[in-house]
Design a binder for these strands. Structure first.
Length: 596
RNA sequence: GGUCCCGUAGCUCAGCUGGAUAGAGCAACAGCCUUCUAAGCUGUGGGCCAUUGGUUCGAAUCCAAUCGGGGUCACCA
């Protein structure tokens, strides 16, 4: 049983008998004692002073004395103002530590043990341009949440819905056709997604020029935008695509493949993967029948101009069109179809998570509401993992205006910085080249991933490309360094670690006790992180743990400790610390090196 | 304008299911490597937690209003 429940039980029994109350254990408010005070757990006595008819201090004293008698795990208490601080006996923490130490997967539930299957969609790129910093946040977040959910024993299916068709894709295609001169990734040496992205920008440039030209000849801006030849050609290409025109399809396939080859490299560098990839070219027609079905059930209605809509004003939302007057789909049509299709394909999934930026908050509210109205009882288990924009000092990133931070450049830059810093330290001179390269990658990507994951997904975050991501302080490399330090000590310990049995009679150093207490929290942290879909909870916890280890490291020597029992305990203590750091970082998708 | 999110140290962020003197990191300054990796540790300075009012024994945290920033309100995706 969890110690906090155990304490709550004794406390409720104590206050109930002392003040004839009927407080339930779950209503006892217990918190960890602040560092400045003596004790492990603290009870706020204010809620009981009325019933006790005593001062907060006296009330605390009374409760303290009572539970000291009834609960042998508590060895002492003190009262400061209205706060009753309880100290648990060292033996309790030691025995808890033994459990942590025994369990290689402490805090992590066995794979698929919860019986809950979750589908998590993330990444979902467009195939007309390379990935940028916004995608990086999406990918890292999606991957981390999936990994964190797995620690809770859930079976997570990671899926990617690739937006591979539509007018924006045709823009790159048209531009390439006109200006490309047959350029290919092979010929140009450009990564495929970058090459296609180049023509997306090219389209915009040509389009703007044509619009301006038309306006100079007297067109209104609106007309010019509609009549620019390149735009007309793009729309024509979309029609051809939808008609299955061979030449268009061949061009589309070829250019998309360039992009996929490029994405493959970026995904690999990011360390993310998928169990299934959906393509919008296969799903964009889904949902139409569902709309027709909903129409007969009067969930939807036909408007005067033949478009089909749903009225959500009673749910605090607006009217929403679900099918155009010409019978074609809108964005939400296929989202409805895709969701329903997925639940048919995977009947066991209990939950669907969509990792999509917060500019689509309203869209998902509408989507889930419509699913609910359509009678999908799983609609309430759908969750929009909404995250804030990554902003630059100048403001929002805009693909077409070139104010984006390219994902590949960013990653390469981080790895390069890691290489420079690491080589300058002179610590890796004798490492084999292969290990060096892997290490620079681990550190560079660790810095980037941690930088992004340590902030609450819901909040927008600021990234200044001019200030490169730090490698000191509250950073990924700081944590990796703590891990490498521990591993170094463990390598130098020339005795068998497995045969150590921790003594029951140890006097704990302050930092040792703090380490045990913090390690004890790990399972709760993972749970909270999973329940709130927030990797930052784990990230900040692991940082605390690494920092605490560094403090311990500075105050207590492990290998030079002369008392054998203490030395062995410390070996075990740092071993579990390293394990938790590693497992915690794994759940964020961040690697930790054995040495650095 | 309706609606949603946000406003904490010079900067980037924690803390927000109400509790003790609001925490980290960066940046600045001062110390610590003949002692297990100094990507580290210790210390100093830095805050009317946007403002005002309310609820409460107690508010950065809950509620309301105001001010500032952003998103969204398509037969776009």
């Amino acid at each position: 049983m969890n110690i906090e429940h155990f304490l709550s039980d004794t406390i409720s029994t104590a206050v109930n008998s002392l003040f004839s109350l009927t407080t339930k254990p779950e209503n006892i408010i217990l918190q960890k004692t602040k560092k400045e005070f003596e004790g492990d757990y603290t009870l706020v006595t204010f809620p009981y002073i009325k019933a006790a008819k005593l001062t907060p201090e006296k009330t605390g004293e009374l409760i303290g004395e009572e539970i000291l008698k009834t609960n042998p795990t508590i060895t002492e208490f003190n009262v400061v103002k209205g706060f009753l601080n309880l100290t648990l006996k060292t033996g309790f923490w030691l025995s808890e530590f033994k459990n942590i130490s025994k369990d290689v997967n402490y805090g992590i539930k066995p794979a698929n043990s919860s019986g809950k299957q979750v589908m998590l969609e993330y990444s979902s790129p467009n195939t007309n341009k390379p990935l940028h910093l916004g995608h990086v946040r999406n990918n890292l977040l999606g991957y981390a949440v999936a990994a964190i959910l797995k620690t809770q024993g859930h079976d997570v299916i990671k899926v990617n819905l690739v937006n591979d068709r539509g007018i924006h894709i045709c823009k790159s295609m048209v531009a390439w056709k006109f200006f490309g001169n047959g350029e290919t990734p092979m010929l140009s040496g450009l990564k495929g997604d970058h090459l296609v992205g180049k023509y997306y920008v090219e389209f915009d440039r040509a389009y703007k020029k044509q619009v301006q030209h038309l306006m100079e000849k007297g067109s209104t801006k609106e007309d010019a935008e509609k009549q620019a030849p390149i735009m007309l050609q793009t729309q024509e290409m979309l029609l051809k695509w939808e008609a299955g025109d061979k030449e268009t399809m061949d061009l589309w396939k070829m250019m998309n493949h360039w992009v996929y080859d490029g994405f493959k490299i970026s995904y690999k560098k990011l360390g993310v993967d998928f169990d299934k990839i959906y393509y919008e070219s296969n799903t964009y027609l889904l949902g139409k029948e569902i709309v027709q079905e909903g129409l007969t059930k009067n969930i939807f209605y036909k408007k005067e101009n033949n478009s089909i809509a749903i009225d959500l004003t009673n749910d605090g939302l607006d009217e929403k069109i679900v099918l155009r007057s010409d019978g074609t789909s809108v964005y939400i049509t296929q989202d409805l179809g895709t969701a329903i299709e997925r639940f048919k394909e995977f009947p066991k999934i209990a939950q669907m998570i969509y990792t999509v930026g917060n500019e689509q908050d309203y869209h998902f509210k509408v989507l889930f509401k419509i699913l609910e109205k359509l009678g999908c009882e799983w609609a309430k288990e759908c969750y929009h993992l909404s995250y804030g924009m990554v902003e630059l000092p100048e403001g929002k990133m805009k693909s077409r205006e070139g104010t984006v931070v390219d994902a590949d450049d960013l990653m390469d830059g981080m790895v390069e910085t890691a290489r420079e810093v690491t080589e300058a330290s002179g610590k890796v001179a004798e490492f084999p080249q292969e290990e060096k390269d892997e290490l620079f990658n681990t550190i560079g990507m660790g810095a980037l991933k941690y930088f992004i994951l340590k902030v609450d997904p819901k909040k927008k975050m600021l990234f200044d490309p001019k200030e490169s991501i730090d490698l000191h302080g509250n950073t990924g490399p700081f944590i990796q360094y703590a891990h490498a330090r521990i591993k170094s000590i463990l390598r130098d310990y020339n005795a068998d670690i497995h045969s150590i049995s921790v003594s029951d009679n140890l006097k704990l150093h302050e930092k040792e006790k703090e380490l045990i207490k913090l390690q004890y929290d790990f399972p709760k942290i993972l749970e909270e992180s999973a329940n709130t879909y927030n990797p930052a909870v784990v990230a900040n916890y692991i940082y605390e743990l690494a920092k605490l280890f560094n403090q311990f490291y500075n105050e207590c020597s492990v290998l030079k400790e002369e008392n054998k029992a203490v030395k062995e305990f410390r070996i075990k203590l740092i071993e579990t610390t390293a394990r938790i750091i590693k497992n915690g970082m794994m759940s964020l998708g961040i690697e930790v090196p054995e040495r650095m």
